[in-house]
């Protein structure tokens, strides 16, 4: 994730805790392009304590096809950056095993103005949910597990 010389943060799929939301925001704020930015928009997907059906969850496992997932993440970010008013986007998705409330994904969009930023963030979130090659398994409090599709 971090560049050899400049501590850059590059969108992609990484082991959990590779960096924090604050690391990403600070990285964007240190870039020269921050002069064009009027708003920074963040989304974090975290582990919820219940499944969609209301079953108590104790944790989640994320499995990933890293090569395919990284290609899709790069495509999403490239497309978003082409949108009017978008200065930067960083999308980090983690894989591994996670406890309740732990971070699974961060999407950070830096925009000239809030309108473009909100729209771009929403598009990026909806796209990563549908396009990147990761799978989520919910581990329930009763000891059972289920891959979500």
């Amino acid at each position: 994730m971090f560049g050899k010389n400049d501590n850059s943060i590059i969108s992609g799929i990484y082991p959990k805790d590779a960096c924090s939301l604050e690391d990403i925001v600070q990285f964007i704020k240190k870039r020269h392009s921050i002069r064009e930015v009027g708003s920074i928009h963040t989304f974090s997907g975290i582990v919820r304590a219940t499944s969609k059906e209301g079953k108590p969850v104790k944790g989640i496992k994320i499995d990933a096809y890293e090569e395919l997932a990284n290609k899709s993440i790069n495509q999403i970010c490239d497309d978003i950056k082409k949108q009017y008013g978008i200065v930067e986007i960083i999308l980090i998705h983690y894989h591994g095993e996670f406890c309740l409330s732990e971070d699974l994904v961060h999407v950070v969009v830096a925009a000239g103005h809030r309108g473009e930023g909100f729209r771009a963030l929403s598009v990026a979130v909806e796209r990563y949910k549908k396009e990147i090659a990761v799978w989520k398994r919910e581990d329930f409090q009763d000891g059972t597990s289920e891959w979500i599709h």
Partner: peptide, 10 residues
């Protein structure tokens, strides 16, 4: 080769 079931991001 990989066989991929429907995805489910975080």
């Amino acid at each position: 080769i990989a066989f991929l079931l429907p995805i489910s991001g975080g």
